[in-house]
Structures are given as C-alpha cells and as structure tokens.
C-alpha cells in the first residue's frame, strides 16, 4: 500500500469520524443530508459483498467493517435518535435520491467488467458513490451558512477521492496494477463534483472567514 492510498483512506475515515463526532457530542445533524448518507450506506453494502469471501488483509477487512458500521449508524441516528433527528433539515433536504439509484443500476448492468452478480454490484457502488454527494451539495447550497464540522466533513470526503486518484496514478507507474477505466471515470466525476466546494472552502480558509456558498 502506498502513502497516497493510506492518506486517502485516512481522510475518508476522518470524514466519517467528524460526522459521528458532530452527531454524538453535539447531538446535531444540522446541515447533513440524510439522502447522501443513505446512498453511502447502499454504496458500502453493495461494494463489500465480498467482505467475508475475498480476504485481502486485516486492514482491509477492518476498514470495510468501519465504513459499513458507521454509514448505517449515521443513517440510524438521523432517522431514529430522538434528539438528533430533530436537528435534521428535512424540508431543505429534498433531493430525490432514488432517481440516482436506478440509472446507476442500469449503467452497471450495461457497463461492467464482468457480468456476475458481485461484479455488477461492485460497479453499481462505484457509479452511485460518484454521485452520492449531490444531495449533500444541494443542501449546503440551500442552507448557505455552513458550520465548521459540516464543511470539514465535505472537504475530507472530497480530499479522499482526490488522493485515490493520485494513488491510481502512482500504482500505474510503480506496479503493473492498473485500475479499470470505469473506476477512473467514477473517481474523476466524484472529485470534480467537489471541486467547486473546494474553491470556496479554500477561499474562506485563506481569508479566515466563515464558509459560505454563493447563492
């Protein structure tokens, strides 16, 4: 494993921890899109179907368990926890996320590496992950005033995917391993979706001002 992959995994892990911290300690999920969180739960559930059959390393298995456990518990908190759910911006979080699922599924059935159940599900999870941030970005745009933890969450999530791209480039040159073009396209789309947010995030950081997105 190279440093970029590790850094990518760590930013991904931190993004989840930041979110859990916000939910756990402040008992608030204000500014967080439940739609996006539900999509991530689906992403991990469909991607890690091989968790018990395809053993890579203890590291991989543990991380998979963390991502599965955290994504489902975040959804649970936002839906059912009697204090946390009150802070959920339900009226603002109106992106119809199910309309993302069907096109991703059809695309995975048409464009995949191998037409097997596990492989199609894996590809579906890649397509879905690429667009899963959309409801969150729409919610940020609507609420405009973004608290620190929410801003950091989205930033870390974007950084994770950007670092994975560097990791693929690195692996391409150092190992014979090359990532399938499907993965490349999804990773690029996902990172580009966050690029606009990155711009405003760095602006606010540079000027030491509260993060605000333009109307």
């Amino acid at each position: 494993m190279n440093i970029f992959r590790l850094a990518g995994d760590m930013t991904h892990l931190f993004s989840v921890l930041v979110l859990l911290l916000k939910i756990h300690t402040i008992k608030s999920c204000a500014g967080i899109s439940l739609k996006t969180q539900e999509l991530y739960a689906i992403v991990f559930a469909t991607r890690y179907l091989d968790i018990f059959t395809n053993h890579i390393s203890p590291y991989n298995t543990i991380m998979k368990l963390i991502f599965l456990g955290s994504s489902f518990s975040i959804v649970w908190y936002m839906r059912y926890h009697k204090i946390v759910r009150r802070s959920y911006d339900k009226d603002q979080d109106t992106f119809r996320h199910y309309i993302l699922i069907l096109p991703c599924l059809i695309l995975a059935l048409l464009i995949n590496e191998k037409f097997t159940f596990k492989e199609v599900m894996w590809t579906f999870s890649l397509y879905l992950e690429a667009v899963a941030i959309l409801p969150q970005l729409v919610l940020l745009q609507r609420t405009r005033n973004i608290d620190n933890l929410t801003g950091q969450y989205v930033f870390l999530l974007g950084a994770y995917r950007a670092l994975y791209i560097v990791n693929w480039i690195y692996r391409y040159f150092t190992e014979d391993h090359f990532v399938h073009w499907i993965t490349w396209v999804c990773g690029l789309v996902q990172t580009l979706l966050c690029a606009d947010f990155f711009y405003y995030y760095f602006q606010s950081w540079k000027n030491n001002m509260k993060l605000q997105l333009p109307a």
Partner: peptide, 10 residues
C-alpha cells in the same frame, strides 16, 4: 499484473 480490478481498495 492485472488488467482489471483487484478489489484490494476500499
């Protein structure tokens, strides 16, 4: 050496 996805990433 692989032409495809090793699925060794998260």
């Amino acid at each position: 050496p692989t032409g495809g996805n090793l699925h060794d990433e998260l």
